[in-house]
């Protein structure tokens, strides 16, 4: 493990100025369940020089409903979100996504902010001692393309990277139409991930910190649901996960939001399926068609065609559960 500097920030301003000082060579640490593993395994050729701890900044772990909006501090623990009564009843998909993340020990440490800012879990990217210097790390190759790609993207690559995004909570937040507030801006959660710069995953600049998640309160006639497919019941990252939110008008769909994850480089919103559902009743054949439309553009790799069927099955399950 590389030696690094560690700072306990007392305020967000202090954390931001430290980030500026290290000019891209420092990382934020909160729960540490992702980044400590990266350091321990020497995943990067050059690990960051410093970690800036924001757990020491008071008051960033709140979950509160204000007017028409649920506000979540970035340090809210996954375990707390999983058991929060308000979330379970009104923002169901998020509570379920938090509950299905990792294991109890990790949920007690891991934060919602960390979960949406986490690094890739591609096994080539992640192999200790930087054994595969892939595109994400400045190399030239994506090893999954011709290699063991059973867990990789079914919607093609971005800048040649086929690694999927592993977050369970991100698709729930996107389906719930959340916004993300940072030290610089407020943007849609659906726009939080980027594909321009292969070395990072979110839009966050090197001196920018996520400071709040804002979810509009769903109407009375709205329901949401999250489903995850993994090989084991605990610990595993998703093979595919899916969050759906449906707002009804009578028995017809007024608006549907669907977000898949672990199927593409970023969370994947199947727009055609969402549009198709508008104005329709949620019957077996409509969700079947929606699932077909959602996966219409899929182009599986040599070993991951099975993920298409799993994705369809999760879309159907989550939609029907919103009825």
């Amino acid at each position: 493990m590389k030696r690094f500097k560690h700072y306990d920030a007392c305020t967000l301003d202090e954390a931001v100025s430290l980030l500026k000082e290290f000019d891209g060579k420092a990382n934020i640490i909160a729960g540490g369940t992702d980044i400590v593993g990266l350091f321990k395994d020497n995943v990067f050729a050059e690990s960051p020089e410093a970690l800036i701890n924001i757990k020491t900044i008071p008051g960033l772990d709140y979950v509160q409903e204000e007017e028409d909006m649920l506000k979540i501090g970035p340090l809210a623990l996954l375990e707390d979100l999983a058991h929060n009564k308000l979330l379970k009843s009104n923002y169901t998909a998020l509570a379920e996504a938090a509950r299905r993340t990792a294991s109890p020990h990790i949920r007690e440490m891991g934060t919602i902010g960390g979960n949406i800012c986490q690094f890739s879990r591609c096994w080539y990217y992640r192999l200790p001692n930087n054994r595969f210097n892939c595109i994400r790390k400045g190399g030239k190759d994506c090893f999954a393309e011709e290699g063991e790609n059973r867990y990789h993207s079914i919607f093609g690559n971005v800048k040649d990277c086929l690694a999927v995004h592993p977050s369970d909570t991100a698709p729930a937040l996107i389906a719930l139409e959340a916004k993300v507030k940072t030290t610089k801006r407020v943007i849609e959660m659906a726009d939080f991930y980027q594909t321009e710069d292969a070395k990072k995953f979110s839009i966050l600049d090197s001196d920018e910190i996520l400071i709040e998640i804002q979810i509009p309160r769903p109407s009375e006639s709205t329901k949401s649901k999250f489903e995850k497919f993994a090989i084991r019941k605990s610990i595993d990252f998703p093979i595919v996960n899916c969050a759906s939110k449906v707002e009804f008008e009578g028995d017809k769909v007024k608006k549907a939001n669907i977000c898949l994850n672990a199927v593409f480089v970023t969370p994947y919103v199947p727009k055609k399926a969402e549009e198709y559902l508008e104005g329709k009743a949620l019957e077996l054949d409509t969700v079947e068609t929606a699932a077909q439309l959602a996966l219409q553009d899929a182009k599986p790799l040599s070993k991951n065609e099975y993920k298409i069927e799993i994705a369809k099955s999760l879309i159907k399950k989550t939609l029907l559960a919103c009825k």
Partner: peptide, 24 residues
Amino acid sequence: IVHDAKGRPLHNSLHKYLLPTAED
């Protein structure tokens, strides 16, 4: 345990190697 084309094992940790957990 599978290997890449150069013989590097991809399953090398308790996380990646899919041992049944207590819940399974």
